[in-house]
Design a protein around this nucleic acid. Sequence first.
DNA 1: CCAGAAATTGAGAGCATGAATCATTATCAG
DNA 2: CTGATAATGATTCATGCTCTCAATTTCTGG
Lengths: 143, 143
Amino acid sequence: MSKAIQELTILKEHLTKHNLKLTRQRENILTTFLKMEHVTAEHMYRLLAKKDPHIGLATVYRTLKLLCEAGLAKEHHFGTQTQFDNVAHKGHHDHLICTDCGKIVEFENCQIERLQEEVATRNGFTIKTHRLELYGLCATCRS
Amino acid sequence: MSKAIQELTILKEHLTKHNLKLTRQRENILTTFLKMEHVTAEHMYRLLAKKDPHIGLATVYRTLKLLCEAGLAKEHHFGTQTQFDNVAHKGHHDHLICTDCGKIVEFENCQIERLQEEVATRNGFTIKTHRLELYGLCATCRS
DNA sequence: CCAGAAATTGAGAGCATGAATCATTATCAG
DNA sequence: CTGATAATGATTCATGCTCTCAATTTCTGG
Ligand SMILES: [Mn+2]
Ligand SMILES: [Mn+2]
Ligand SMILES: [Zn+2]
Ligand SMILES: [Zn+2]
């Protein structure tokens, strides 16, 4: 089973479970979404408008939110931009962001995660989510 | 020298250095700002409006930005809210945020900071800033 | 294969935050 | 004081996203 089909299956199951319908727009948005790592709603809208000039911006926003609910996407707020992250085949990770060229590198560091838990426990908190973003210059932009 | 006077001095020096003027509004905003740890522009606006109903919202935004430039405040984006943090007497710190009651706890963990540097170096990045926020439930809201 | 209930769509209005505009007012150096 | 210059505040604008609603599409089950 190819990855794209597997993700379409996940979406279909989510739709069925919530009495929602599979539409041409939802399929198109998923297909385009799966081709990239991170994408903004506006960017997706412009990509889709090339194929279907009548796609609505509201539909793009609604569907990206739907993909989050189905567990296929994850929303990240980097600076002023809201990026949707293709997470179906990824575990948890945080991000390094180049403030010059916008390059995004994903990383995972379980030592940091463990220390976060420690901090929370020490303060009587139970962590539900966290957000760790490192902003700076990538190797290319530094030189 | 009291803390409030010390901070007024810092602001005055910043103003002089940049050919800016000390106004009644700027003094009032600083005075109110120094009384709290974290505040939003809207909240500050409502507090000030009690004393001076003619204060402009734009002035509040402009002055909070000015306080950031003078090093007295630091802007944080928590969820959808933008909080201004009274940092004159604090070093760098990150935040634990209760998603139920909104409580904010500050912490500092140099082990995490060091690991962040390591991650960046390993990926060829030079960190300029970072953002670490832990969201969850505080002890009170958990029970 | 329908018919019809229910969900979805897209155009545009609405909303929230924050920044720009600009005529009027306040500051402050000389 | 006075004049150059900066600041203010009412308002409009910009951005990013959500809501509204009439028209359309989906899809179930007879
Ligand atoms: Mn990612
Ligand atoms: Mn703080
Ligand atoms: Zn770069
Ligand atoms: Zn709480």
